[in-house]
């Protein structure tokens, strides 16, 4: 494993900067579709900056887990992000197992997020944690299966290698296996980032929350890390979707500045298109009943399984 420190640093900065911007863009566009002016796209930055400077109120019954969880959530998302090629193949980091490590890191973050929700022993945190685990128990296998669809073509679970393969065989983009897997991951994206129809990121109703319920007891810096971590995780999943499944414009290892600039433009365009899709889904749908959520995620799982199957059928 050879590390390129500049590449590593640049991608880290890009992740940190782009993630809140993306959340902000989605929020801003949603507001526009709700006939209001809404926050500016960079509002999420200002919120995080504010929270970083605020004091904290720590619940009485909180243990070390409560203090530890925000860092784990934040760092695991960031680390996962370094394994996904954003502008350039290969990604700066390639841990053993590739895609498996990515899913594992996201699971680690979620595990600590749920623990952090449980730790202060408030009723809502516990409810949120239990719901989050229910959702992820189905979302996670669907994500794995969908990634495997591509991994089998590529003959590797390394994400950069997968992106390279899909890039070289352009026709692959319209391959039914590919499309099915793409759809599956899109549904997983909605679930994992707490979006309608699974969760409502804008809700004030403590009884219906999933993701927000786990954060209710956090304040100040910890809350900033939690929120930032969540937006980085969203960016990672989106990048996975646009760059591994649709690596148009992605620059190669020896790309010059022009190619990198083109890569950035293509990446931004693809992300914005994906944001638009998310916004449309969120605007036109109501939230599912909690017990219907597994149905939706099972659908994602079935799609991913079909993708895998058609992989062999239509080879």
């Amino acid at each position: 494993m050879n590390l390129d420190p500049i590449h590593l640093l640049l991608q880290t900065l890009l992740l940190l900067a782009l993630a809140p911007l993306l959340s902000g863009t989605i929020r801003s566009w949603k507001a526009k579709l709700q006939n209001r002016r809404g926050p500016r796209p960079w509002q999420a930055f200002l919120d995080i900056a504010k929270f970083l400077r605020k004091d904290m109120v720590i619940p009485e019954h909180a243990s070390w887990i409560f203090h530890f969880a925000p860092y784990v959530v934040f760092l695991s998302a960031l680390l996962a992000g370094l394994m996904v090629p954003m502008l350039r193949i290969p990604a700066p980091l390639s841990l053993f197992g590739g895609a498996l490590a990515l899913v594992g890191l996201l699971a680690l973050g979620r595990f600590f997020l749920a623990l952090g929700g449980l730790d202060p022993a408030s009723a809502f945190g516990g409810m949120g944690s239990s719901r989050e685990m229910t959702v992820s128990a189905i979302a996670e296998p669907a994500l794995m299966l969908a990634i495997f669809t591509v991994a089998i073509t590529a003959g590797s679970t390394d994400l950069s290698q997968m992106a390279r393969t899909t890039q070289s065989t352009a026709f692959n983009l319209l391959n039914p296996a590919h499309v099915l897997a793409f759809a599956a991951i899109f549904i997983v994206l909605l679930a994992e980032t707490g979006r309608i129809p699974v969760d409502n990121p804008a809700t004030h109703l403590e009884l219906t929350m999933i993701h927000e319920a786990m954060l209710l007891e956090y304040s100040g810096r910890y809350l900033a890390y939690m929120e930032w971590g969540a937006s980085v995780k969203q960016l990672v999943l989106m990048t996975l979707l646009v760059n591994v499944f649709f690596p148009v414009g992605l620059a190669g290892a020896d790309a010059g500045p022009l190619a990198l600039a083109f890569s950035l433009a293509a990446y931004a365009a693809k992300l914005l298109a994906l944001c638009a899709a998310v916004v449309v889904v969120e605007t036109t749908n109501a939230k599912l009943r909690l017990f219907r959520v597994p149905d939706l995620l099972s659908a994602a799982f079935v799609l991913a399984a079909l993708a895998l199957l058609s992989m062999f059928l239509f080879r």
Binding site: N35, A202, L205
Partner: peptide, 16 residues
């Protein structure tokens, strides 16, 4: 009622 099931568009029109 719409906003409680997260159908925000209808909520916004109702508020208007």
């Amino acid at each position: 009622i719409c906003t409680d099931v997260a159908f925000v568009t209808a909520h916004m029109h109702a508020m208007r």
